[in-house]
């Protein structure tokens, strides 16, 4: 039985599942030193061979690459939607003497949900190039990968090391 993430609804990795028959739950157990995969799409071939590929690691790469590619695509879409650039926009003269510009899907406002420590969300509206950055930050918080600061001298601390609150970046 295939895992749920290989269901037809999860179309991003469907091809990978069908091709390899490898459960994603296993595929996600990639070697810890393969941290560059999320940042780039690696085709099969030389790069894979150098990494001593096994079916499992190949599966992991394919899955992560597909996810990374989809993430990049969505980020690119978001940047385009919230772009405030007028580069390439054209003023069209209308028969009644008025002027029209097709905004080409730009100048849109975007609502983003940032998770709070109590499970609720803070919803904020963004425009401009920073919207994608804010969405990534919200996702990092949700995924628990937001960077956290470390006190310089914790040796003298009488406070046990505790997870930093979400509000403290």
């Amino acid at each position: 039985m295939k895992p749920a993430s290989c269901s037809p609804r999860n179309w991003l990795i469907l091809g990978f599942c069908a091709l390899l028959g490898a459960p994603v739950t296993q595929a996600q157990e990639a070697k810890p030193n393969e941290t560059r995969l999320p940042q780039q799409v690696i085709p099969t071939g030389e790069e894979d061979a150098k990494a001593e590929a096994t079916p499992v690691t190949q599966a992991a790469r394919s899955a992560v690459s597909a996810e990374a590619a989809e993430t990049q695509r969505l980020e690119a879409e978001l940047r385009e939607m919230t772009s405030e650039s007028d580069e390439g926009l054209v003023i069209e003269q209308q028969p009644d003497g008025s002027e029209l510009v097709d905004l080409q899907g730009r100048f849109m406002s975007v609502a983003i949900a940032t998770p709070n420590a109590d499970g609720s969300y803070t919803v904020s509206c963004h425009t401009g190039e920073d919207a994608a950055g804010h969405a990534k930050h919200a996702h990092d918080i949700a995924a628990g990968t937001a960077p956290r600061a470390v006190k310089q001298d914790s040796a003298k601390s009488t406070t046990p090391t505790a997870p930093k609150a979400l509000e403290e970046k």
Binding site: E70, T71, L74, E75, E77, L78, M81, T82, Q94, D96, G97, S98, E99, L100, V101, D102, L103, G105, R106, F107, M108, S109, V110, A111, I112, A113, T114, P115, V123, A135, A138, H139, A142, A143
Partner: peptide
């Protein structure tokens, strides 16, 4: 449609006009 993690939704004008009656 899928909009990326934590992106709820978006909207905006399709066109802008000026100097119309």
């Amino acid at each position: 449609e899928p909009l990326g993690p934590n992106v709820l939704g978006s909207a905006g004008a399709v066109t802008a006009s000026r100097n119309f009656p």
